[in-house]
Design a protein around this nucleic acid. Structure first.
Lengths: 152, 152
DNA sequence: TCCTATTAATAATT
DNA sequence: AATTATTAATAGGA
């Protein structure tokens, strides 16, 4: 995937500057797609992005806060549970303060997010498999590092 | 804009069924773009969409709730104020409250289910991590093979 | 759903 | 930033 003069691997770019360039171009594209989706289908859409530099960008059709409010009001929050198309990863992890138990929870929570996002069970196309491959490689690297940290 | 056999106008489709078709295709595309943006730039991304039928779809990299929390916590909320690309309308809503420790305990239970599905246990000691590492490597190799088989 | 003609998004380069 | 070669997304139809 990718679109441009060359096919690129979808993986974290090494240099901060490259990440910022990719972010700028693709954030713009993402918001445009979101706006189109709203205009065509009348769906309500809320997007929140933090740039690599930590700057927030918000996009809402018709309004970010209202849509998020509606979601957290819970009236319909469980309706998506049975839809296998849904990419739904809501997993709270504690950031910080750090007693050991909490740290472990955080590590495990992050790992879980990675695994859940892979969702390669039903993938039958090259793109999904490639994404899963990338994710797996990163999870593996994380594990290797954790093991090393434990004194392996 | 649009991409397909014909250029289309970006305006609300008249028939509900047409809106649903466009929504299904484009929601998938939007989430894919979001995942790519995250993978490439390490940006944090949260998307919430209500379909024309009112069904919610959530996408979060790395986690929807955490990103939204971070935004509403306000630590960085004002950083975007000077960016003219930002569509920014804030109205805080309260939700959740549950204490973090309890939330994490629930998370651990869910995690173990996930890890079992992945064919390895989710312990946090070195031996189990090593086993997990081996399992992940095998899964990864499987995926790489699958990708090769698809002719990538 | 799947297919494919066509357009839109974007990676590399300037 | 602006341009352009190329790929990816998708509109319409099977």
């Amino acid at each position: 995937m990718g679109t441009g003069k060359k096919k690129i691997e979808i993986k974290r770019k090494e240099k901060q500057q490259d990440r910022m360039v990719a972010f700028s171009k693709r954030r713009k594209g993402l918001f445009k797609k979101a706006h189109q989706l709203h205009a065509l289908s009348a769906a309500h859409i809320a997007i929140l992005v933090f740039s690599p530099a930590g700057k927030p960008y918000v996009c809402g059709d018709p309004c970010f806060d209202d849509i998020v409010d509606k979601y957290y009001s819970g009236a319909t929050a469980n309706a998506a549970a049975d839809d296998n198309d849904v990419v739904n990863c809501n997993n709270r992890s504690t950031y910080g303060d750090g007693n050991d138990a909490d740290e472990d929870c955080k590590e495990i929570g992050e790992l879980k997010l990675w695994l859940k996002r892979m969702d390669f069970d039903g993938s039958d196309n090259v793109d999904d498999l490639l994404l899963a491959k990338n994710d797996l490689e990163q999870v593996r690297d994380k594990l290797i590092k954790n093991v090393a940290d434990y004194g392996e």
